[in-house]
Simulated assay, not measured.
Amino acid sequence: MTAAAALIEAARALDALGFMPSKSGNLSVRTGRGYLITPAALPYAETTAADLVEVDLGGAVLAGHRRPSSEWRMHAAIYAARPEAGAVVHTHSPCATALACARQGLPPFHYMIAVGGGGDIRCSGYATFGTEALAEACVAALEGRRAALLANHGAVAIGRTLAGARTLAMEVENLARQYLALRAAGLAPVLLDEAELAAVFEQFDGYGRLG
């Protein structure tokens, strides 16, 4: 499968899960010249390979006849800051977005929090969508992490591959759903301590869960 086909397939699958309401969210994969990103304001069901846009890290359009997603600055900033990132998935998935609207991240209430690369999944500071300020806030929240929530906005996940970033975005939503259910039941989460988290990372290292 080509990078373009994989990008469209991933976008449609996440849209079908309700992660990309009203043409929101965006996905990209790194290329030799920059990155290939989904276009602005086009339903994913209608998106074809010809609609994708290749952009360099400075924002110049290299290929494509449509406007790139309004969040192209965020994708560019992530790729510039994280050379290991091969793909970026940004969603407006319901539970992660609900938590982001409270400007709260996910603490280590479940061992799977470690798939985000650290002991929590942070929520960024707020900035208007599509701005350089949001790109900077996102990169800051991702420092030492592979996933973050974006205040009053949504979630972002990075991976070495598109499949990895997509899987992580789905797990962030799953964790957010569990955490909100716990809080809605009036229960206080029992958080994993540093030693317990260290053991999780050791186990994950053997299983390749953080690859």
Rank of each mutant, 00 (worst) to 15 (best):
R67V: 11
L62Y: 10
L210P: 07
R160P: 13
D56V: 05
R177N: 09
L162A: 02
V53C: 10
R82C: 08
A135N: 01
C138Y: 02
H65T: 15
A181S: 15
A151W: 04
T161F: 05
S69G: 09
L142P: 11
A41Y: 04
P68D: 07
A184S: 14
A133I: 13
L142E: 03
V156P: 10
G86D: 13
L162R: 00
L27R: 02
R66C: 08
E171N: 02
G34Y: 01
L210C: 14
W72K: 01
I78Y: 06
G119R: 13
L17P: 08
M170K: 02
S24K: 00
P108I: 04
T2F: 01
A50G: 14
A76Q: 00
A87M: 08
A4P: 00
D120E: 14
A163E: 14
R103V: 14
G32I: 03
C101I: 08
K23A: 06
A11D: 00
E173P: 09
R160I: 13
R160F: 08
L42D: 07
S69L: 07
L7C: 11
G105W: 01
R66I: 11
A195G: 13
A45F: 02
L7G: 05
M1E: 13
S70P: 10
A50D: 14
G206R: 12
E143L: 09
T2G: 04
Q104R: 12
L187G: 00
V156Y: 05
A85N: 11
S93I: 12
T31F: 09
R66G: 06
E136K: 07
G211C: 12
R122L: 15
R82T: 03
G159P: 12
L168N: 00
V53L: 10
S28P: 12
V89M: 06
T167E: 11
V190T: 14
G59H: 01
P43F: 02
A157S: 15
E46N: 10
R177P: 00
D56F: 01
L187P: 00
P21N: 06
E71T: 12
D193A: 05
A98F: 00
L187K: 11
R103Q: 09
T128R: 11
Y179T: 05
L150N: 11
T47F: 03
T97P: 05
L52Q: 03
D15G: 15
R12V: 13
R146K: 06
R67L: 06
A151F: 09
Y126I: 10
A141M: 05
R73L: 10
G116I: 11
A114K: 05
A169W: 07
G105T: 00
R183A: 07
A81W: 00
C95Q: 12
L14T: 08
L197Y: 05
G18L: 08
V29I: 09
G119K: 09
T97I: 05
M20T: 15
E173W: 03
D120M: 12
S22L: 15
A151H: 06
T167L: 11
A199V: 08
F201I: 13
A63Y: 00
A60I: 10
L162D: 01
R122K: 06
D193Q: 10
R146N: 07
A188I: 03
Y35L: 03
G25L: 06
Q203E: 03
